[in-house]
């Protein structure tokens, strides 16, 4: 019986913690959406804690007509999508190479790649700009995507490498006996096995690109190429964004909702991939 009580108590504590933290994560959304449906004066009165008197879509209309968030949004989707694909391919190749293949200077390359991830980007503002300009990649989508690929590479290579290190070698051996080349082994055997690692790499890099701001400001100058975060920052600094809280929150909601929906659709696959890896590891 005391065992039973202990267990219940334990469950109670755990679930209280879980629910509290979950509430703290959900509350800002509800509050944001709720506030975005009010005029600013009403928000100042009730701090956004009460339901709006009448559903007021003025803030959204303003956001859509003046905010220009649409272009920014498409840009962000494009950057995220392409960068993540490039990172997955390049880093799984490199991770496989470093983990399984022999060549001179391998360890040196690996450690250099790891070390590079620590250099703060703002310090390299001027060098990056000059360099990209010299090869004509400045103010282009490709330039930005390549730069973002670079940012994500270190961590992704590290993840793939450690993952491949843990995999048993027999599968690879049997494929080799079947006469597969190294590239085919990578594509048909190793890459599919690395699903959980890919899951983590995809999530991390997708978020990283989606949230990136500084590099975009360095590399891009044309407003048609800017990602969403820059658009939001600009909106938040415009006179409406700075003074009309509820309009700002409407813009934030517009920016946040699609990515949340995408995340909700995708998360099943992502988590499936990650747990599928559980059986392999």
């Amino acid at each position: 019986m005391p065992e039973q009580i202990k267990k219940t108590l334990y469950l109670l504590v755990i679930h209280t913690l879980l629910i509290t933290v979950a509430l703290s994560c959900i509350f800002p959304f509800v509050w944001m959406i709720n506030s975005s449906l009010k005029p600013n004066s009403e928000f100042i009165q009730d701090h956004g804690f009460e339901l709006p008197d009448t559903i007021n879509l003025r803030n959204y209309i303003y956001t859509f007509t003046k905010g220009n968030l649409g272009t920014y949004f498409l840009n962000s989707i494009l950057y995220t999508f392409l960068t993540v694909i490039a990172i997955v391919i390049i880093s799984s190749l490199a991770g496989y190479g470093i983990s399984r293949l022999q060549f001179r200077g391998k360890n040196f390359i690996f450690y250099m790649i790891l070390a590079a991830m620590m250099i703060p980007i703002p310090a390299a503002f001027v060098p990056l700009y000059v360099l990209l300009k010299s090869v004509g990649l400045l103010n282009t989508r490709i330039g930005y995507i390549l730069a973002m690929v670079n940012v994500g590479l270190s961590l992704s290579i590290y993840l793939y490498k450690t993952f491949f290190d843990q995999l048993p070698k027999d599968l690879e051996e049997s494929a080799r006996i079947d006469g597969c080349g190294k590239l085919r082994i990578w594509w048909h055997v190793m890459f599919p096995l690395a699903k959980p690692a890919t899951g983590v790499v995809v999530i991390f890099n997708a978020l990283n690109v989606w949230n990136e701001l500084i590099l975009a400001l360095v590399i891009l100058s044309n407003k048609g190429l800017m990602p969403l975060q820059v658009g939001l920052l600009k909106f938040s600094q415009s006179s409406v964004g700075l003074t009309q809280y509820t309009t700002l929150m409407a813009a934030l909601t517009v920016a946040a909702l699609p990515i949340i929906i995408i995340y909700l659709i995708m998360q099943k696959h992502i988590i499936k991939g990650m747990t599928a890896g559980a059986t392999v590891g």
Partner: peptide
């Protein structure tokens, strides 16, 4: 082309160097 105030000078400096 509008840049946020906090990054503007850096943008100009970098562009000048390049």
């Amino acid at each position: 082309e509008l840049f946020p105030h906090s990054a503007y000078t850096q943008k100009i400096n970098a562009a000048e160097a390049a």
